[in-house]
């Protein structure tokens, strides 16, 4: 069952090919890590998934729907920086995830009170209740990213896109964020794409790890060809998805034996 379908996607800016011939099928609830060297087009691919850019060729569909022409509520996103609104308090950032969908983008009176109460529940769940009234700039990097993820999930997107979400965090905070993200995933069973330059992180969190690289290379014009998916690892169970089948299903052993 393919939930996110990518068919023969190319992206080029002028003469510069960024990615080419990308085909991908992702099932609902899968966590896909995307790794690769700098400038290999993994962030471009994420922007294509986000519909912030349209591919030069090919199409991307979610659940068989029409290819999107601009970002919308189907796709949630967390960037490395600037993912929350700095002029809003932490609580109002969560409220915005509900209120932005309809003009004028604000709740008033009882609706606002109810939304703020729901936002406080969300903040308690992601451990930010004590800073609800503060502005994001006063928060640490890890707390800001937790807020960004909480905000993105409050809008209930069908696919969550993460662009190096933990890239600017120190190691300890990053490990805590891994646990946080794993917990949230267990609760929501969300389909997630995460771009990272940290291989270990990719394998730890992902069900699949996609590697982007160039397969064709013209030494005279390095920009002639784009990158594509060169490896598609099954990263479940620490990268050995089938070796422990017998431990998990002892019944199989009897049949095999």
């Amino acid at each position: 069952m393919s939930f996110v379908t990518v068919r023969d996607v190319w992206q080029r800016y002028g003469d510069r090919s960024i990615i080419e011939r990308v085909n991908l099928d992702v099932a609902e609830g899968e966590f896909v890590s995307i790794v690769g060297a700098s400038g290999c087009g993994k962030s471009t691919f994420l922007r294509l998934l986000l519909a912030d850019e349209r591919p030069t060729r090919g199409e991307i569909r979610i659940d068989g729907g029409e290819p999107a022409r601009e970002p919308g509520r189907e796709r949630g996103v967390v960037f490395q920086r600037y993912s929350v609104f700095r002029h809003m308090t932490v609580r109002d950032n969560i409220v915005a995830a509900e209120s932005f969908a309809r003009f004028p983008g604000r709740f008033f009176g009882p609706a606002l009170r109810a939304a703020r109460a729901r936002a406080d529940d969300t903040l308690a769940r992601i451990g930010l209740a004590h800073v609800a009234g503060q502005y994001p700039a006063t928060l640490s990097g890890g707390m800001q990213q937790r807020l960004a993820i909480g905000q993105a999930l409050t809008a209930r997107p069908r696919v969550l896109l993460l662009d190096e979400p933990f890239g600017a965090l120190d190691t300890g905070t990053r490990l805590a964020m891994h646990d946080f993200l794993t917990e949230l995933r267990a609760e929501t069973n969300m389909t997630v794409f995460m771009v990272t330059h940290d291989l270990e992180e990719g394998f730890k969190l992902g069900d699949r790890v996609l590697v982007f690289d160039k397969v064709r290379w013209d030494p005279h014009s390095p920009e002639a060809f784009g990158a594509t998916i060169t490896y598609d690892f099954d990263a479940r169970d620490g990268g050995i998805p089938f070796q422990r089948q017998l431990e998990r299903y002892p019944g199989l052993a009897a049949q095999a034996g």
């Binding site: 960037f79 600037y82 993912s83 905000q151």
Partner: peptide, 15 residues
């Protein structure tokens, strides 16, 4: 990023 984020929350140009 902030403008894209607002769009993913469903905001129109006016919002």
């Amino acid at each position: 990023e902030e403008i894209v984020k607002a769009q993913t929350l469903g905001a129109s140009s006016g919002t």
